[in-house]
């Protein structure tokens, strides 16, 4: 059996201090303030009710995010119908593939830009801030589905099962989300003349 954290009041304070960090990811994934508040409150309650479960095996932040991911999957499961129904007024029926610039014969007008070494870029905190901003600007449903794949690490089959979506519908949304994210990164990171 795991032991209680050495200094329980300090543990409770550290958990409370991480609330903002957890809210950031809950908002990004759920795109609904009330749902995010509920999920994070459940994480805090679970952590404070069973502090012995932490056991110092990892960083507290990592342990709490792990709990949050499970709470978010529960929240999505409970609201499966709503998760896929909100439509953005800004969302058009255009395929973002058309923004890449193809000639009538289907070939590129201009070849895509070279992005350099992605691993080097991704080691920068500033890059992650741009990435998170780009994800938060995706249309609501696309953003939720995209992060279910990329942050919650669910397979396409699992996403379809959880939400009762057809695979065709899911693939259309993910196709648009990935192309919009690519475009946003190109404009807001790779397109900048000066990079850190």
């Amino acid at each position: 059996m795991s032991r209680l954290p050495h200094d329980l009041p300090a543990f409770e304070e550290q958990v409370a201090d991480l609330r903002g960090y957890l809210m950031k990811f809950a908002r990004l994934q759920l795109r609904n303030e009330t749902w995010a508040e509920d999920a994070v409150s459940e994480v805090m309650l679970a952590a404070l009710a069973k502090p012995q479960a932490f056991g110092n095996r990892s960083q507290l932040k990592t342990w709490l995010v792990g709990i949050l991911k499970h709470k978010i999957i529960d929240a999505i499961r409970q609201r499966a119908r709503e998760v896929c129904q909100e439509q953005d007024r800004s969302e058009s029926d255009e395929d973002p593939l058309d923004y890449l610039g193809f000639k009538a014969d289907g070939h590129y007008v201009e070849p895509p830009a070279e992005w350099g070494n992605p691993e080097q870029q991704a080691s920068s905190r500033q890059f992650f801030e741009v990435l998170e901003a780009c994800v938060s600007h995706l249309p609501v449903v696309q953003g939720r589905l995209f992060l279910m794949r990329e942050w919650l690490e669910l397979s396409s089959e699992e996403v379809c099962k959880e939400l009762g979506l057809t695979s065709t519908n899911l693939y259309v949304q993910l196709h648009r989300a990935r192309l919009r994210l690519r475009e946003c990164l190109e404009l807001n990171w790779y397109g900048k003349a000066v990079q850190p």
Binding site: P118, Q121, S123, F127, L131, E153, R182
Partner: peptide
């Protein structure tokens, strides 16, 4: 290369 880069970046962000 852009898509492979995005895949790598999302993994590092995770």
């Amino acid at each position: 290369r852009q898509m492979l880069g995005m895949r790598q970046q999302l993994k590092q962000w995770r």
